[in-house]
C-alpha cells in the first residue's frame, strides 16, 4: 500500500497534526514502507479467528459507586496553558 501526499494530508488532518508541506513526501515514503511491512499480515489466512483485544481472558472488575475524589482544581490547573475563573480557556469554539 502506497500513500500519496493527499492521503497523508487527510490522515494528518484527522489526527490534528500540522505537517509542513516540505515534509509530506518524507512521511508518504516512510508511512508507505511501514504499510508494506504491516501488510505481510496477509500471508496468513485468519478467517473465522476471534480477534484478541486483550492478552488474557479476564473480565472487567467493577467499582463501588462511591465518591472519594475531592476538589483539586487549583492543583490540576497549574499545568494549564491558559485558564481563568477555574475554566480552561481555548480559542473560541464555533458551534
Amino acid at each position: 500500500m502506497s500513500l500519496d501526499a493527499d492521503q497523508v494530508r487527510k490522515i494528518a488532518h484527522l489526527a490534528r497534526l500540522a505537517i509542513r508541506e516540505e515534509d509530506i513526501p518524507g512521511y508518504a515514503h516512510n508511512l508507505s514502507n511501514i504499510l508494506d511491512l504491516v501488510e505481510k499480515m496477509n500471508q496468513v489466512d485468519t478467517d473465522g479467528i476471534e480477534p484478541m483485544a486483550h492478552s488474557h481472558d479476564a473480565v472487567q472488575r467493577l467499582r463501588e459507586d462511591r465518591v472519594t475524589e475531592t476538589n483539586q482544581r487549583e492543583h490540576f490547573q497549574v499545568n494549564a496553558p491558559q485558564s481563568e475563573d477555574g475554566l480552561f480557556l481555548v480559542p473560541r469554539v464555533i458551534e
Partner: peptide
C-alpha cells in the same frame, strides 16, 4: 481552535510519534 490543535500537536510531537499516530489513525 483547529490551528491550536494542529500546531500544538505538530510541534509538540517528534517525527516518529507523528508517524505512529498517522499509521494508527489510518
Amino acid at each position: 481552535l483547529e490551528d491550536m490543535y494542529k500546531r500544538s500537536r505538530g510541534e509538540g510531537f517528534g517525527a516518529e510519534v507523528k508517524r505512529r499516530i498517522m499509521i494508527g489513525t489510518y
